[in-house]
Design a protein around this nucleic acid. Structure first.
Lengths: 269, 269
DNA sequence: TCACCCTCTGACACTGTGTCAGAGTCAAGC
DNA sequence: GCTTGACTCTGACACAGTGTCAGAGGGTGA
């Protein structure tokens, strides 16, 4: 019979775990002294201990290990659990790979003297929405800035009457033949109205987004940075991009904008 | 100003986290109502939120993120933290890869109708020790079984006198020219004695071990299984193997043995 | 007998998130 | 003004798997 210390040393685990496993019933010492509660392990229990250690190395939790070592387990169940575990480990592996790539990308950026990318980009899904909007078309990008504001106002005037509080303003841009098409309006769940279109905006399960703060004029460089980041991370745009105006009002001040830039993407595979 | 719900939705995090981060000071709402404690976030705080989300995706903990977003951080410190993170992620990546290989190996074993390898093998380091032992040489493996027992007895008789309780019996086997060399004795920290050699046993930082239970005659197949497993996992033996007798006595009974089989290995690279 | 090591129990800690309970608040519709 | 439903608040427990600490008792050798 082995003391807990000896057993722990042979099996390369700590006393703490052996006591924990005793409590949870995973590995109960062959004998426990009724007077001083000292635990004694039979050397034969090393086999079970080894199985436990091996399963732990595969990343199984205590619960799972208990089932796997239970008496009545058959090859079928075993296989199911291993397959589930495989899926999880594959996921961990992918996550780690992606993280690694991202960490290294950032390290390279620093080495090239760009301390931290000027915009912070995150990936998230976009949910579907319905817009009340107008679609306008311009030939050159610079024209947009003169068109967007008034169009928002026009749409707001139409639907603002029936719908007290306007929801989020959104602009969707897609390139058309010889120019840019902009759909400009508000998230809207009411009825159709004269003078605006009801436009369903599809959900996107992968999009890169960032926020642009401050002067609206600078939004172009934020877009550029966003698209650079998309490419750098191995993705490409997969649909029209959107601007979501989180703060635009402030009565004439143009230096207090907060705009979420959204670009649906797909992985370059 | 955005309510916690709106802010959470835009930033794709849960209220719970925002409250948690408020508590820890990582992201404090721009305003908290003194009467009802409602949190209000400034849209500009989305930038910080995005940075936090991005860093979380790299696997940084809250503590680290706080430092990374602190005011006085310079590129130097940033780089140090990223490098540390890189090392950790690389480790995770390796672990996941190893696990994946192991899980798949086990799945294949099951498919080939070998429900669970008969021996359970784990990898652990071996610590150094000093033996009081005798070295014997045999030509054929079967001879060993007749030699080992008596040699243990002979060594025990010599050192047992001065050293009350004998420590663990160990046998070390290495192949010599035309035969097998066996070093048989006990872990021993006393002085040299007539009739036995003091033999230092080096530490090994990687070894595969398993336990053999029951009849001592079956130990050969346990060794074979251990060596098969070593190869299957992409390692090869890198030194003499050892047997550590955890239970051998039992007065003449040969079916109650508990022996740890230890084989130092190196990775096949 | 003393000193030292082993072992016991029980507790708290960590991380980051889910969830629940119970209470309070806000806004909209009637 | 009242109801209703959605939102928010706090505080707590929970998870997993260890590390660690405190305080007490046991066992052994000098």
């Amino acid at each position: 019979m082995l003391s807990i210390g000896a057993f722990a040393q042979i099996g390369q685990v700590t006393h703490r775990m052996l006591r924990h496993w005793d409590q949870t019933g995973l590995l109960v010492p062959a004998h426990t002294d009724p007077f001083n509660s000292y635990r004694s392990y039979d050397p034969q229990q090393l086999e079970r201990l080894h199985r436990i250690v091996a399963l732990r190395q595969l990343g199984f939790g205590i619960e799972d290990i208990s089932s796997l070592l239970a008496d009545g387990i058959d090859a079928e169940q075993l296989m199911v659990m291993l397959q589930r575990r495989r899926a999880e480990v594959e996921e961990e592996h992918r996550t780690a790979a992606a993280r690694l790539a991202d960490v290294e990308r950032r390290l390279h950026l620093i080495e090239r003297e760009r301390p931290m990318s000027s915009v912070e980009v995150i990936k998230k899904p976009l949910s579907a929405a319905q817009l009340a909007a107008r679609t306008v078309k311009v030939n050159e990008q610079p024209e947009l800035i003169n068109v967007v504001g008034p169009t928002f106002d026009a749409v707001a005037e139409i639907i603002g009457g029936t719908c007290g509080a306007l929801e989020t303003p959104i602009a969707v841009y897609s390139s058309a033949e010889e120019g840019i098409e902009a759909t400009i309006g508000y998230v809207y769940s009411g009825q159709a109205q004269e003078g605006v279109d009801l436009i369903p905006l599809p959900a996107e399960n992968e999009a890169f987004v960032t926020v642009h703060l401050g002067e609206i004029q600078g939004i172009g460089s934020s877009w550029q940075a966003l698209h650079e980041e998309i490419l750098a991370r191995g993705y490409e745009p997969s649909g029209p991009c959107r601007e979501l105006y989180l703060r635009a009002d402030e009565a004439g001040r143009t230096d207090q904008f907060v705009v979420e830039l959204q670009q649906p993407v797909r992985s370059i595979s």
